[in-house]
Nucleic acid binder design. Structure first.
Lengths: 225, 225
DNA sequence: GTCCGATCTGGACAGCGTTTAGATAGATCA
DNA sequence: TGATCTATCTAAACGCTGTCCAGATCGGAC
């Protein structure tokens, strides 16, 4: 009876998401597919993330996803989207927890790189998708998204950019730098150095601290002082 | 008759596609395959670079490459190796042509990014391979290779790193920064900005000049001055 | 001149992304 | 209530991929 009732109810609203017996035609697949994709990404790496594998993991036929996503790329985009959202959260948290606005920018960078390091397969998909479409997802660019927060943090740190453009360029430079380090920090040839510095995060902070030496601006400052 | 002769000859050496007579059993395939790979990379992009396509382009069967490369990855590695060598050359040239040692580091960065921009498919393969093995090819790290030159240029610019480690960190920071910009400079969302600044190279230089703002070092210098 | 070992082919295998035709079942309207 | 509509899903097929195998081919050493 109770079972009948719940079944009826479940049927009526067509969901019953996480675990419990699969209800309906086949639950809401979109979400299930994205979840399956992330599961595969975490357990088997980005190379195993085939459309068929995702469908298998979700318990549907290989053609089923095509009723929810135009093609494989669109599914991966959805997975990547989740990643960008979480990266945005991680950055917001790092910013909130920073000891002072002055160090917030660095903390954002560290959080960004840590996210990439803790979710390597996901980060790879995120950037692969971004490169293919040559764009970041909308919400990653907005103020509440990952990158938008950098500009705010820079201003909060007391920087006085000479123009809107100046600020924008700092933001882009920060972004590129973080991405570059994020992609390379796992390279084996840095392992000795990491140990020497007392861990990976220390290494990341050391590299971030040395970025400035390179720029014309930094050199100008050096000569001025 | 002539037809018979040429046919016989062709049969004897079995194909002779491009131009000059291929020597031997089938010429030295290794080199031909790498060349074919680069050709495909340039004309059809990195996604079209399948083992079978390379074999087709070189005029051999899909199994032939396996007598010269353990698997597809090893072939791509060879293609990437050529890329790293050429990138090293481009950097050396930029360094040689720099107006002064003081600007050489920036010029190296610009040359690096320009190379990536002019050979996007090749650069992608280069980094995909590096990421998979988590290492750069040997010769890219040596002094005569691309990255090794950065340290020399930094010293030549008059920088006085406090230690071997300090220099190494600057080098790594430079490398990561260049890579990050190289991968993102093609993004559509920067197009307006590029126009505003008068071209892509101007944009790259502007971003490079703004990198320093981010680092703790730069901030310290700012406060000191 | 015969044999060896390197090189290449043709065919096969499983797995991939994608498309098509047809089955299933919730929702809608009579 | 029952018939119909529409979204969803399956089964089967296509051509592509990377890789392996048995066998053909041929340059070079004995």
């Amino acid at each position: 009876m109770a079972d009948d009732a719940t079944t009826a109810q479940r049927t009526a609203k067509r969901i019953a998401p996480a675990e419990a017996p699969k209800p309906y035609h086949h639950g809401d697949l979109s979400r299930a597919l994205v979840a399956a994709g992330r599961r595969i990404l975490e357990t088997e790496g980005p190379d195993a993330l085939s459309l068929r594998a995702v469908a298998r993991e979700a318990g549907v036929s290989p053609a089923a996803p095509y009723h929810h996503f135009k093609d494989k790329g669109e599914l991966l985009d959805a997975v990547a989207g989740e990643g960008w959202r979480e990266l945005g959260d991680a950055i917001a948290q790092a910013r909130a927890e920073a000891a002072s606005p002055a160090v917030a920018v660095t903390e954002i960078g560290v959080a960004y790189i840590r996210f990439a390091r803790e979710n390597p397969a996901l980060y790879r998909i995120m950037y692969r998708m971004a490169c293919d479409r040559k764009t970041m997802p909308e919400h990653a660019r907005k103020a509440e998204g990952g990158v938008g927060q950098v500009a705010e943090a820079i201003l909060a740190a007391g920087a006085q950019p000479t123009s809107e453009l100046d600020l924008h360029l700092i933001q882009i430079a920060a972004w590129c730098t973080a991405h570059g380090i994020a992609e390379m920090v796992a390279f084996k040839e840095f392992e000795e150095l990491k140990e020497q510095l007392g861990g990976e995060e220390a290494f990341v902070r050391a590299v971030l601290a040395h970025v400035g030496i390179l720029s014309g601006t930094a050199r100008a400052m050096l000569q001025a002082s």
